[in-house]
Amino acid sequence: MIGTIEQMIKDMEHGVYDFTKDGKCSQCGQCCSNFLPMSEKGLKEIKRYVKKHHIKPQKHLMPTVEPTIDMTCPLRNDAERKCMAYEVRPQICRSFLCSNPRNGIWATKREFHARYRVVDLRKEIWEES
């Protein structure tokens, strides 16, 4: 038990939290972000999917943050604990698993940020400001 707690503290110090259950995604939503590096092709695919399925942006209010800014993915439905565009989710979302080694997580993040522009999903998909 002590080893587990010590590992959790080390992970927290480095910004990596393992929320998986038995090594599989728990769909907790902790990694879901409104700002993601994406290809233009991937963005167009998500826009078409959202339009076809009449998906509305989800709001995630964090009352402790002033002013209230929702930085969580607008495609994340917290009530159902799922991504509403899972079939066409961004490539970085497909690649991420919080139980992966920290250096692999950061390498993947650097790779995507070098290759694609970071988009504001709310603005790009629903033209919100």
Rank of each mutant, 00 (worst) to 15 (best):
M1H: 13
T4C: 13
D11S: 13
M12F: 14
E13V: 00
E13N: 12
H14G: 00
G15V: 07
V16G: 00
Y17G: 00
D18Q: 03
F19P: 03
T20C: 06
T20S: 07
T20Y: 00
T20P: 11
K21N: 10
D22Q: 06
G23L: 10
C25V: 10
S26D: 05
S26N: 09
S26A: 15
Q27G: 00
G29H: 02
G29T: 02
G29A: 03
C31K: 02
C32Q: 05
C32M: 10
N34E: 09
L36V: 15
M38W: 04
S39A: 08
E40G: 12
E40R: 11
K41M: 11
K44R: 14
E45D: 15
K47L: 09
Y49W: 13
V50E: 02
K52F: 14
H53W: 14
H54M: 11
H54G: 05
I55S: 09
P57W: 11
P57M: 08
K59C: 05
H60N: 03
L61C: 07
M62E: 12
V65L: 15
T68S: 06
T68M: 02
M71L: 11
M71R: 06
C73S: 05
C73M: 10
P74V: 12
L75Y: 05
L75P: 00
R76L: 04
R76M: 07
N77D: 15
N77M: 10
D78S: 02
A79T: 13
M84A: 07
M84R: 12
M84W: 00
V88Q: 07
R89D: 01
R89S: 05
P90E: 10
I92T: 08
F96S: 00
F96L: 00
L97W: 04
R102L: 07
R102P: 01
G104D: 15
I105R: 01
I105S: 00
W106M: 14
T108L: 09
E111G: 04
H113T: 06
A114Q: 14
Y116S: 06
R117G: 09
V118W: 08
V118Y: 08
V119K: 01
V119R: 02
D120F: 02
L121V: 10
E128Q: 15
